[in-house]
Write a protein that binds this DNA or RNA. Structure first.
Lengths: 205, 205
DNA sequence: ATTAAAATAGACATTGGTGTCGTTTTTGAT
DNA sequence: ATCAAAAACGACACCAATGTCTATTTTAAT
């Protein structure tokens, strides 16, 4: 009688596999990546990997969860600076993400959601919706706090403005990925959107 | 001695196959669609289809060309109404496209470009760039005509505004497809973007 | 009606991946 | 050192799709 093996070990191996998988996804995209690829990248055997994950879709979903854990929603941190400064800082952060090359995995996510949805007809993925709504409410609440603190006097509803910002950034991200930042002129566009936000949020001074 | 067969016939068959292919793409998405599917949908033999197209990527590219022929760029038609009315009318058209289900093929295109780019690393697709720039310059020129006619007094460059509009609509399209129009609240967002355009274009009256 | 080229059919070999399963190795409690 | 359970291995049977190739049918000019 002697049941076996460490508990932390399994989790580590799992994370190791997920990291290898991420490399593969970034290199090949979601749909073109194969179990084979991940097996090679992780330097593990077929049998082993299947004892951790059922299939490649499962792996991607676990990876998503993992990334979400890391994902600190910026606006949930109570800011020290003014509303406007914090907003602009966040937009600049997004700008840097769009331009940098580590948006690759972001694009894999887009591919994943897109193809998943294109297959399983008509039904929207509740997980994706939850993610989106979390971001929306985090920005909405941020705007609401700005109103409470009397730093802004928005001319449209907080939520509509939040949704608007997200759409714009998603579109800019997608187009820039497909076309390059020279073609989409990211900086000019960000400049425009900041201008429009000033007009719609009406920050004091 | 007697060479053979009608010439128009071939083209018709080609168009027929492309239409079937489009149905398949809409139903399954680009990457999940197979030659098999198209063969069945078109009710044609394996041998026949391969005498028209080399592979499924080839089919999709031909389909793209075909769709582009149909694609009338709205702004290239000289409008009868005022600048502002014409702009709003176009945005409403986009709004309807986003909400309607025939954005499915639009999403297949996105999937195609995305995965194509995710594979062939780093290099942007010149065809996609051409398409994008055509749209950009068509909107830009439209705005410029508005300026000439003294109907608007924009506070940012025409091109930056054009790019901004496209990004926003692309993002809204993508998110709405993935999440549904109830979640993205399309109408409210369109309302916001029109408001911002009024502030940035400064139409007379 | 004949005929040769073109168009179509569908069987086939091949490829590239999947998930399973029996075997071997490793693990850590005793 | 022993031992049973857990973990890892990798061969394998299977599947779905591809593109090719030979045979058959259709076409329209003669």
């Amino acid at each position: 009688m002697s049941p076996k093996v460490n508990n932390q070990y399994k989790r580590n191996k799992e994370l190791e596999i997920l990291q290898s998988a991420k490399n593969v996804f970034i290199r090949k995209g979601y749909l073109k990546a194969t179990m084979q690829d991940i097996i090679v990248e992780a330097g593990i055997s077929r049998g082993a990997i299947y004892s951790y994950f059922n299939n490649i879709e499962h792996i991607f979903e676990e990876l998503l969860k993992l990334e979400d854990e890391k994902d600190i929603i910026y606006f949930e941190i109570e800011g020290l600076s003014s509303f406007w400064d914090q907003l602009i800082e966040w937009i600049r952060l997004q700008q840097r993400n769009i331009v940098s090359t580590n948006n690759k995995f972001l694009l894999c996510k887009t591919e994943f959601f897109l193809t998943k949805h294109l297959q399983s007809n008509k039904t929207y993925n509740p997980y994706v919706i939850k993610r989106y709504e979390r971001l929306v409410s985090s920005i909405t609440n941020f705007i609401d706090r700005g109103i409470e603190k009397k730093e802004i006097y928005p001319l449209k509803s907080s939520k509509a403005i939040a949704l608007y910002i997200i759409s714009f950034l998603d579109g800019l991200m997608l187009d820039t990925f497909n076309l390059g930042m020279e073609v989409t002129e990211v900086n000019d566009q960000i400049d425009v959107v900041i201008f429009t936000l000033e007009n719609i949020l009406c920050p004091i001074k």
